[in-house]
Amino acid sequence: MADLDPTVVAVIAAMSVATYATKAGGLWLLARIELSERTEAALDVLPGAVVISLLVPALSDLGAPGLISAAAVLVVARRTDGVLPALGLGMVAVVSLRHLL
């Protein structure tokens, strides 16, 4: 095992504190604050909006094989409700399309 760099250990420890604080802090706050329905609606769409924000710029870098495979993943994920079939098909599709196109 490689030697542990104290800086790395400190960063990991600090990040774990930061991660816990954001999670526990959110729960702590929500237990004390009455949210308006408007705020709740905004919070409800937040996860989807974050996923889309991660996805769309990544998709635009993929090129045709990636985009076609992405469409295939979407179709399989909606039809089967299964994560693994969608991922498997996506990988097979992207590898073969890169060879073909």
Binding site: V45, P47, G48, A49, V50, V51, I52, S53, L54, L55, V56, A58, L59, L62, G66, S69, A70, V73, L74, A77, R78, V83, A86, L87, G90, M91, V94
Partner: peptide, 28 residues
């Protein structure tokens, strides 16, 4: 491509129908 595919599957799970469309479009 795996990470992109994982987020695609996540997106289909978070999709709540047409009501998600405006916010998702603006986010994109």
């Amino acid at each position: 491509f795996v990470l992109t595919a994982v987020f695609l599957v996540l997106a289909t799970e978070l999709w709540e129908g047409r009501s998600s469309l405006p916010a998702w479009t603006v986010a994109a």
